[in-house]
Design a protein around this nucleic acid. Structure first.
Lengths: 195, 195
DNA sequence: ACTTTGTTTAACAATTATGTTAAATACCGG
DNA sequence: CCGGTATTTAACATAATTGTTAAACAAAGT
């Protein structure tokens, strides 16, 4: 009973991710997704049964990847500066690929409170916050609540990509310039938060 | 033929703003809005004819207020540091009141390109960017493209508020702490970008 | 060739959201 | 109390979206 895998189920998910997380089209319909994937709408229901389930799967995978990334970066045994550089490098790349991803996680997060968070927190975030605090004592980072540091860090990475269209119109950034500026930001962000 | 103003039209708009810009409910229906405002759904159509028109009005007023705020802050004849402080103070307050407002403007902005932007740009943004550049030459701000400075500034203000729920769960920030941390940020942001 | 799985087509039911209309009721000012 | 405006109620039409089903077709393996 060989179930052959044509990759179409994955194609549909990837397309949904592109539409939701890259294009930021919050109320794309199953038809929109099917069209973008170049398949029949029925197939979307065939594989996922309902729009909600497709949506949920896609968001869950986004959460999982987010967790993985945190894992990878924060638990590597390297110096703080290296870790920080890698953190910025990896996250910026992901944010550029999927600017709206975190936003979907945010709006989903408001509904379901989770307990799994504790695991991530204890395993990765808490130790990293401690490292940040140590760097503050060493005078390498401006002293504040380490959580303020984290919020600033994410903000500097995520928001400019999210507000791309506003930046282009209000700051007169051209289509060609924008990716270059985002690349530059990796260094700029590091310099802003670490001396 | 006195047309008496009961303020209901405004109530509906304010409620829509609350739902869209504060609660971030991107696909709230006319029914949702009517319920939240405590009026009959028919009344929404009576005043605004269609959901699109209500939505458009609300977003346009958001844009207008945004423009006004920029006007107010950026064209006042005070020192750069004072201007910067005021900028952060005023904008943070607005962002806290309406965290999702810019996001709606962003998604709207992607559809309609505007020419009115040039007016705002020439009148306020361009001169301010020049001021920023001057401060960079004076060594008060780290030298980069002034537009990077602007993007960082907005990011530091907007994103932490936008990602409130994520911050609360992942950084273990309590409901009580959050507003305090946001208030603290005004100073923190200033210190981060100005020496 | 036969079978299985993947995919499309078409037709349909159910639901939800939008928008319209007409009549009934509530409220307020003169 | 009268007249007009504000608001509600109810009923309805329409459109969009979702979801289901059955049949046909395509492709690939054995």
């Amino acid at each position: 009973m060989a179930v052959r895998d044509t990759g179409t189920e994955q194609l549909i998910k990837d397309t949904a991710k592109r539409i939701f997380f890259f294009e930021g089209r919050f109320h794309a319909t199953t038809q929109d997704i099917a069209d973008a994937a170049g398949v029949n709408r029925t197939l979307v229901h065939y594989y996922f049964r309902s729009r909600d389930i497709l949506f949920e799967q896609v968001v869950n995978e986004a959460k999982e990847q987010l967790r993985q990334t945190l894992d990878n970066v924060l638990s590597s045994k390297v110096s703080f500066t290296e870790k920080l550089r890698k953190f910025i490098d990896v996250f910026m790349d992901e944010i550029i690929a999927y600017p709206y991803r975190e936003l979907f996680v945010i709006t989903e997060n408001k509904r379901h409170e989770k307990q799994e968070v504790d695991l991530i927190y204890d395993a990765h975030i808490k130790p990293f916050l401690a490292e940040v605090k140590a760097e503050m004592h060493a005078g390498k980072i401006t002293s504040t609540d380490p959580r303020q540091f984290m919020m600033s860090l994410f903000a500097l990475m995520a928001y400019p990509v999210l507000s791309e269209s506003l930046n282009k119109t209000f700051l007169k950034i051209s289509d060609a310039e924008f990716p270059k500026l985002m690349k530059q930001r990796k260094q700029i962000i590091f310099d802003m938060i670490y001396r």
